[in-house]
Design a protein around this nucleic acid. Structure first.
Length: 375
RNA sequence: GCGAUAUUGGUGAAGUGGUUAACACGCUGGUUUGUGGCACCAGUACGCAAGGGUUCGAUUCCCUUAUAUCGCC
């Protein structure tokens, strides 16, 4: 077995779904937020801290682990779970997203064969192909592998996207052909920007290949508007079979998670909670707050009264601000613990709301408190 | 007591007789959506020790005072 998705309940008023995903390394409920652990670690957190946050699954990255320490070393260690001592499900991203940002000349470097680029570590010229990405992921032995796709920028033209999704489909087929880890699931990725016909085409053709789950990609890129992101989801989900899990790649912000869930998404991942934490910011029910702000200097209350995370149960805003402004390691750690728990708790609440068919009401209440600029 | 040198923002400091006083740190905001890059962006001295003078114009030249450091009695 690799994975088993079961749909438990469909919300009455929206496309939101409650489900369960079973893997060899544990079962978790969906919708779920997946913390990002690019280099086989969710930056600064121990596995125990991830369990405490009720994290169902974490993401690691093929490109980074390929370069360092190398997939063979991880295989020797007994696979990614053993290597990083994480006893829960792990998904590996294909490396496509990273490699495209490193490819200097998009037209020349992105070929039918794969993507040519220079290592960010030593400048060595490298080629990542769909086959190579899958072979690496097979060795990493994650629970879920992702197809190697092209992740075009939001600004890409219709014609570019059309060619790109066709190539991504060919790449998906090539990857699937070499995938040979029976314990590992393989997901296909739907692209197509904010164009209805492209998303539909990409979704239908990807689903034809019969993957274990499906992702919506190419979203939340370089200044894409929220409306376009929501459209990309709306245009993709109708074509994904109900009994397959759906993963929206790279999202993110609390509001986008809620909107994604309403549109039928089951899994999200995002660097935001850990990245903004390292930059001194935290998610709260009232919106993002910045611990560099002087107003927290003498604020001896918890980050959030009602939050059940380690940070909120034990530390004051004044102390966290002190750690952040003095650049102490613990500051980023404490905020990462909170931010990850915040997003996972958000998905827990969304699951409750789905169960009771009141997800629209939940969104309304959430938005009432949450102050954030709408792009 | 005498002489020399210095005195620029919260800090370290650059600088010039003439439009907006460099840069860095700090500080104050902000950004961050499948994490190469704890990063990026913006703001932050109405004043150059104080008071006089020279000059069309002085932070920049001169004088006095204050303070500091170093010498000498």
């Amino acid at each position: 077995m690799n994975i088993e998705y079961s749909l438990i309940h469909k919300e009455k008023n929206t496309n939101a779904r409650l489900g369960k995903l079973k893997t060899n390394y544990g079962t978790f409920d969906t919708p779920m937020f997946m913390p990002v652990g690019t280099k086989a670690t969710v930056k600064s957190l121990t596995p125990e801290e991830l369990y405490d946050a009720h994290s169902g699954i974490v993401l690691a990255n093929t490109y980074h682990l390929w370069l360092r320490p190398g997939e063979d070393i991880i295989k020797k260690a007994g696979g990614l779970h053993q290597f990083m001592n994480y006893r829960g499900p792990i998904l590996t991203d294909s490396g496509g997203f990273q490699v495209f940002s490193l490819a200097k000349n998009k037209e020349k470097d992105i070929t039918e064969e794969g993507v040519h680029f220079k290592s960010h570590i030593d400048g060595k010229s490298l080629l990542l192909t769909p086959e190579k990405s899958i072979e690496i992921q097979n060795k990493l032995d994650s629970d879920i592998a992702m197809s190697f796709d092209e992740c075009p920028p939001a600004s890409a033209s219709y014609d570019y996207l059309k060619n790109s999704i066709e190539r991504t489909l060919r790449w998906a087929a090539r990857g699937k052909k070499v995938h040979n880890n029976p314990h590992q699931a393989l997901f296909g990725i739907i692209q197509g920007g904010a164009y209805e016909d492209l998303r539909k085409f990409s979704a239908i053709e990807t689903v034809k290949m019969n993957f274990d789950g499906y992702s919506i990609g190419g979203v939340a890129n370089d200044g894409e508007s929220k409306d376009d992101m929501y459209k990309a989801i709306d245009y993709s989900t109708p074509y994904i079979p109900e009994d397959k899990v759906r993963y929206l790649m790279g999202v993110g912000e609390p509001i986008d998670i809620i909107e994604g869930v309403i549109r039928g998404v089951d899994i999200f991942d995002c660097v935001l909670p850990t990245r903004i934490a390292r930059h001194g910011q935290a998610f709260t029910r009232c919106g993002k707050i910045n611990f560099h702000n002087a107003k927290f200097k003498e604020d001896f209350t918890p980050l959030e009264d009602e939050c059940d995370c380690y940070t909120c149960k034990n530390y004051t805003k004044s102390y966290i601000r002190h750690l952040i402004t003095t650049d102490e390691m613990l500051g980023g750690r404490l905020l990462s613990i909170h931010n990850i728990r915040f997003l996972i708790k958000l998905t827990e609440e969304l699951r409750e709301a789905i169960k009771e068919d009141r997800i629209l009401e939940y969104r309304e209440n959430f938005l009432k408190n949450y102050k954030e600029r709408h792009k």
